[in-house]
Amino acid sequence: MATSTLNNVRFAGMASCVPKRVVSNLTDCRPAIRAERERLVRNIGIETRRMAAEWQCFSDLAFDATEALLERLQWKREEIDALIVVTQSPDYPIPSTAIILQDRLGLPNSTIAFDVNLGCSAYPFGLHLLGSMVAAGGVKKGLLLVGDRSSTNESPIFSDAGTATALEFCPDAPPMHFDLNSDGSGYKAIILPVGGHREPIGIQHLVPFRDNEDEPWQRGTDLQLDGTAVLSFSTQRVPPAVESLLQYANVGKDDVDYFVFHQANRMINETIRRKLGLPVEKVPSTLHDFGNTSGASLPVTMTVRLNKELAGGRKQLLLSGFGIGLSWGSCLLEIDGACLPDLIES
């Protein structure tokens, strides 16, 4: 368990962008599997997802979110000292997407820009990374871009999104409390095994296959997910980690206005909520309409469900992301007077 507190860091604003294309898990599938999909939707709680156009990268969505946020904040681009991109969907294997976006956004050469490879737990880890740089005093204004392009026609779970969060140095800002954890022994639970140096792509990985005619076609280059292992990990590790963070910060559950969890699926999220004894009204969800947007799911949920509430005065939130790695992280923060534009569609 790695708990820590950051001071002098203000949550200045956040924007989220999703593709315009809406895909239905019920109607946009083969008729032969529609009954199965109806049962699946009841279990996972995801009816529609957002899917990027063929030409769209994650960075395009993140760019649009950043442009909207900078316009609303009225930040001068030459004032931005750091740009951190947390994604598993880079434009290219090399160079880093952050370097490309630094130039595309018109940020100065003095802006620190780099990528971090992390998925569903990305947001708390990214907040801590950028927040630490701001708290140290060297970075006065910084941007955190989080998201992925992970949707496919076959998978009923994943959606695409890009988000931008602005942090700035402020001596009067309330503290941010973090609890961040990793367990690499479970790395095979969510893995893309082909394409790295451990197993380079070969022609055999590109040949479609399926175990039986009722299952979708897949390739060796497709993501492999052990649903049982992920369910067990999420429901066993996340609730005690949340309790631990609250205890560390000396904050009671009743003092937290909203608990925002990574949007994994209905079964996982409902199990976590019930284990923690949280009322439904304090745990917003975007699963039904937006699916699992990977690392972007926390800011997307805040944007879609809470931006009006957060604009109305100081609110205390507990954010928790968990998944690939395996990794899980939570953040307890207060948001007051932040800029949160409505959801952007691109």
Score class of each variant (00 low, 15 high):
Asp64Gly: 12
Ala15Ser: 14
Arg39Met: 10
Leu318Val: 00
Leu306Val: 04
Pro208Ile: 04
Ile80Val: 14
Gly138Arg: 05
Leu333Cys: 11
Val251Gln: 12
Phe233Cys: 10
Val230Gly: 05
Leu192Tyr: 04
Thr165Pro: 03
Asn292Ala: 01
Phe322Ser: 04
Ser89Asn: 02
Trp217Cys: 00
Gln316Ala: 09
Pro108Thr: 11
Asn250Lys: 11
Gly142Ile: 07
Asn117Leu: 14
Asn250Ser: 11
Glu154Trp: 08
Asn269Trp: 11
Asp60Arg: 11
Glu67Tyr: 02
Met14Trp: 00
Leu287His: 12
Ile191Leu: 10
Arg198His: 09
Arg72Gly: 03
Val86Ile: 08
Arg305Glu: 15
Ala65Phe: 08
Ile33Met: 01
Leu206Glu: 02
Arg305His: 10
Ala65Met: 08
Leu73Arg: 05
Leu276Lys: 01
Leu69Gly: 00
Leu167Gly: 08
Ser182Ala: 06
Asn307Pro: 12
Arg314His: 12
Gly252Arg: 15
Pro193Trp: 11
Cys339Ser: 12
Gly291Lys: 10
Ala264Gln: 09
Tyr258Arg: 02
Leu143Asp: 07
Ile335Glu: 10
Leu326Asn: 07
Pro240Trp: 04
Glu199Met: 13
Pro208Gln: 08
Asp28Asn: 11
Asn181Phe: 07
Leu143Ile: 10
Pro208Arg: 06
Leu101Gly: 06
Ser232Tyr: 13
Ala12Phe: 04
Phe261Ile: 04
Ala189Glu: 08
Thr66Leu: 03
Asn117Cys: 12
Pro108Ile: 05
Leu83Pro: 09
Lys140Glu: 07
Thr3Tyr: 15
Glu71Ile: 11
Leu26Pro: 00
Gly325Pro: 05
Asp64Lys: 14
Val300Gly: 03
Leu145His: 02
Gly329Asn: 08
Ala122Pro: 10
Pro95Arg: 01
Arg37Tyr: 14
Val23Met: 05
Pro90Glu: 08
Trp75Ser: 04
Val304Gly: 06
Ala241Thr: 03
His205Ser: 03
Arg274Asn: 11
Pro171Cys: 12
Trp55Met: 13
Ser232Trp: 14
Ser232Asn: 15
Glu67Phe: 03
Ala241Glu: 02
Ser244Ile: 07
Phe158Trp: 09
Ile272Met: 01
Asp91Val: 14
Ile94Val: 13
Gly312Pro: 01
Gly126His: 00
Arg210Ala: 09
Met176Arg: 03
Ser182Asn: 01
His128Met: 02
Ala166Lys: 04
Gly313Trp: 13
Met51Trp: 08
Ala249Cys: 05
Gly313Phe: 14
Gly277Tyr: 07
Gln236Val: 09
Leu223Pro: 13
Pro240Asp: 03
Ser132Phe: 01
Met267Leu: 15
Ser150Trp: 10
Ala98Ser: 04
Ala12His: 01
Leu332Glu: 13
Asn117Ile: 15
Asp172Met: 07
Asn25His: 10
Ile44Gly: 05
Asp254Phe: 03
Leu192Glu: 10
